[in-house]
Design a protein around this nucleic acid. Sequence first.
DNA 1: ACATTCTTTCCTGTTT
DNA 2: TAAACAGGAAAGAATG
Length: 375
Amino acid sequence: MASSELSLILNNANANLYPEPQASLLSMCRPPHLSEITFNSNSTLGSWDQVNPQMWSRQNVLEWIGFHVEESRFDAGLLNLNYCTMDGLTLCATSKEALMSMFGPELGNLLHHSLESLKARYVNDLSENTVLSESEFELLDNILQNSFPSMHGPGLGPLLETVVVQSTIPTDNSDAKYSYFDEYTSQLTPESDHGYDSLTESFQSSHAGSFLNPSSPESNSSDSDPEYSETPYSISSKNFSKQEPEKTKRGRGRPPKLRDSDGFDHFIQSKKSKHAPRGTHLWEFIRDILIHPEQNQGLMKWEDRRDGVFKFLKSEAVAQLWGQKKKNSSMTYEKLSRAMRYYYKREILERVDGRRLVYKFGKNSTGWRIEETGY
DNA sequence: ACATTCTTTCCTGTTT
DNA sequence: TAAACAGGAAAGAATG
C-alpha cells in the first residue's frame, strides 16, 4: 500500500472522529491523543459485535476499544489514539504481548481475550486468513510502522516480531515484557519536546535502572542504593534548567501557560472530557509506581512497606513521567516535591525528617497498604 | 459565573 | 558547593 493511501485512510478515520471542520483540519496536522476524544460507546455493543473482527473497519476497532475502555473504567487518557486506528485485519494479527504493550497489562489482556472470543465465532474464516504470505507480512509491517512509529525506534527491531502470522494465536504470556510506563512512553514522538529521546528505547529494553538521568541528583548521592545499576539515558539539559541565568527577575506566581502558536493546544484542551479520570492525583501516581514493583523500573522503592515509607531512587525520572502523564515536559523533581509537601497538611503524606527523598504515606492516603493490595 | 481543589511555577532561605 | 528541603505566593486547570 502506498503511504499516501495509508495517510488517506488514517485521515478518513480521524475525520470520522472529528466531524467538525476545524477538527478535521486538526487531525490532518496532528494525530490526537485518545484522552482528547470521548468514546461514544456508552458501554453498549456496537456494530463490531456483529462482524468478523478481521473485517472490522478502523471505526469498528475504535468502537470496540472504546467499549472496553468504558466497561473497565480504564483511564482513556493513558491511551494513544495511534494504537486505535488499526483495522480489523491488523488487529487480529497483533499478539497478546503487543496488545499489552500498547494498552497496558489490564486493558491489553482484556482486549486480547475479547478479541479471541470474537474471533472464535468465525474460526473457519480465521483459519483461512491468518497465515500471511511474505508480501502480506511486509504490507502489515509497513502499516504497523506507519501507524505506530513510536514503537519502532532504533534497536527495537521490526514490529512484526510480536505479531502472529500463524493460524494459531499463542496464549502463553508468562514472560511478556510489559513496561508499566509504556502508556506514557508510547505517547512520545521524535519531535516532542520531552527531553529524553532515548526513553522509549530505555523502557523497552526493560532494564531496571535504565531510566536514570545522569544529571539526576541521586545518581551520585552517597545515599543512593547500589543495588540499582545505572544505565545512562539522555535528557536534554534544557528541560531541567529552571530559567536562563540572564533572565530578568520575574514576579511571584505561576506565569501564563504558553500556547502553541497555531492555537491547536487550546482547541484540543477544550475537547477534553469534563470528568477527570480516577487515579490522576500525584500521590496516587506515586502509589501506583510503588505497588507495581515489577514494573516501576527501579524508580522508587519501599523503605518500610508496612509503614508506608518510600524513597525516590530516580527522582527526576519520576518527575518526567509525572510530567508526561500531565502532558507537561518541563516537570522537575523540585516542582513535584513542592506538590508532595502540600500533602503533609492534608495528611496524605507524613514528613520523614532527616532522610532525603524519603516520604511516608499518611492516614488520608489509601490503596497502598498490604491489606489493600494483597502483597 | 464563581468557588474550590489540586497542582504548577517561581521564589527565598535553610539544611544536609 | 550542590542538592534537597521548606514553605510563601500566585496562577492554571479541572471540576462542582
